[in-house]
Design a protein around this nucleic acid. Structure first.
Lengths: 132, 132
DNA sequence: ACACTTTTTTAGAATCATTATAAACTACCA
DNA sequence: TGGTAGTTTATAATGATTCTAAAAAAGTGT
């Protein structure tokens, strides 16, 4: 999808800064995990161009809300995001403090038997912690 | 287990404050979820007695490290803990911002097929997000 | 009980991710 | 081209967590 459309769908106008953020986020061979700080650094290095943190936060959150990015549920002082928005899970290597993708097929079907009245399941996320 | 032993096993001496924290954490009919702030308030109300935040943080972290409390992997500005240390999972009601226990038997077996060289699985945690 | 050392508690300061603000800037549309 | 509404930015504010250093409590040996 064109970056312009991703932005518009997320309720954002396609400005220069936002398009640059899109470049860094989506113009990659592989998907990746990042924190806002990681991303701001990547932008600075990759584009030789500083974008204010506020703009990075805004854009990332808009994408997350729309589903073009996923937040990874993990306890850390920083919030981790994933450019891989397919249905998948994560290993978390406690020692290295690194996330590793786990494809859905690596986990097998998960069957939530309990139902909550009037609520429906939006997502099922698995975090597998690894130690040595 | 006696509070004194829980504390000693966690590398802490049984002081008055720590024993009071134990009362609030473990002397309950049901298990519960809490943030540090929740706990500090509960202590103040339940024991009519203020314990400094630093002490609460220290004690909770020591228990968490030893496994007498669990951290719940969820993205929030605050860290959530659980006094239920049995193997179980959570619903997270996005609207109410509330956690609900999911017994292991409510989820069914989870089979992690992918292996990482030299690492072993420490825990498998499932977070099921709920919407209306 | 006493003197002495070590650990703990505490209030407040420091840190750091995130969010809010408000002024300067830019995109969009008539 | 002008005007309005949306953006960017640096900076300030917020708020959870961690750090600090001095006072208090607990442990130890006599």
């Amino acid at each position: 999808m064109k970056y312009v459309d991703k932005l518009r769908n997320s309720g954002l106008r396609p400005t220069k800064q936002r398009l640059q953020i899109c470049e860094v986020l989506f113009n990659t061979e592989k998907t990746y995990h990042f924190t806002i700080n990681d991303l701001a650094l990547k932008i600075k290095n990759q584009l030789n161009n500083k974008i204010s943190l506020a703009t990075v936060y805004n854009t990332v959150h808009a994408f997350e809300k729309k589903g073009y990015l996923k937040q990874i549920p993990i306890n850390s002082n920083q919030t981790y995001f994933d450019t891989n928005i397919s249905d998948h899970h994560h290993f978390y290597d406690l020692k290295e403090e690194k996330l590793i993708d786990l494809e859905n097929s690596d986990v097998g079907p998960i069957n939530i038997l309990k139902k909550i009245n009037g609520k429906k399941i939006k997502s099922v996320e698995v975090l597998v912690k690894l130690e040595d």
